[in-house]
Simulated scan of single mutants.
Amino acid sequence: TFDLIIDTVPVKHSLDQYTPLLDIDGTLVIVGQIGPMEESMTAPLVLGRRRVAGSLIGGIKETQEVLDFCAEHGIHPECQVIKAEQVNEAFDHLRAGDVAHRFVIDMASLSV
């Protein structure tokens, strides 16, 4: 179980798969989705004294603190590096919702 989960999912989704992962008095902080969310079951929140909160991104100082924390603890994003000509294919995957990582465009693949 976790004391804190930072939810960075940028699209409408359910919190139901995450709230049971929180420890008693744990908090799930939404920083990715701005807008409607899927309906969620309240029992895991109420019975576990869990919280859902939201936060905007911090400034440069806070961002650097997060990067330092991640570096210290070996936390890194899951990324797939693609060439510029693969952008449309990447968008197709995003539209289909079958992506569990971020796409990163290799800028060296751009023709000048």
Rank of each mutant, 00 (worst) to 15 (best):
Leu15Ala: 13
Asp16Gly: 09
Asp16Met: 08
Gln17Pro: 01
Gln17His: 14
Gln17Cys: 04
Gln17Ser: 08
Tyr18Asp: 02
Tyr18Ala: 01
Tyr18Phe: 14
Tyr18Val: 01
Tyr18Asn: 06
Thr19Pro: 06
Thr19Trp: 08
Thr19Ala: 03
Pro20Met: 10
Pro20Phe: 06
Leu21Trp: 13
Leu21Cys: 11
Leu22Asp: 00
Asp23Arg: 11
Asp23Val: 02
Ile24Asn: 09
Ile24Cys: 03
Gly26Thr: 02
Gly26Arg: 01
Gly26Val: 03
Gly26Gln: 05
Thr27Tyr: 06
Val29Tyr: 02
Val29Pro: 00
Ile30Cys: 08
Ile30Asp: 05
Ile30Glu: 12
Val31Cys: 04
Val31Ala: 05
Gly32Tyr: 11
Gly32Trp: 11
Gly32Ser: 09
Gln33Lys: 13
Gln33Thr: 14
Ile34Ala: 13
Ile34His: 11
Ile34Gly: 04
Gly35Gln: 10
Gly35Asp: 00
Gly35Arg: 06
Pro36Val: 09
Met37Gln: 15
Met37Thr: 11
Met37Glu: 10
Glu38Ile: 06
Glu38Phe: 02
Glu38His: 12
Glu38Gln: 12
Glu39His: 07
Ser40Thr: 14
Ser40Gln: 06
Met41Lys: 10
Met41Asp: 15
Met41Ser: 12
Thr42Trp: 12
Thr42Glu: 03
Thr42Asp: 07
Ala43Thr: 15
Ala43Asn: 13
Ala43Glu: 11
Pro44Ile: 03
Pro44Gln: 01
Pro44His: 05
Leu45Glu: 00
Leu45Pro: 04
Leu47Ala: 12
Gly48Tyr: 05
Arg49Asp: 09
Arg50Phe: 01
Arg50Gln: 07
Arg51Cys: 06
Arg51Gly: 03
Val52Gly: 05
Ala53Asn: 08
Ala53Met: 13
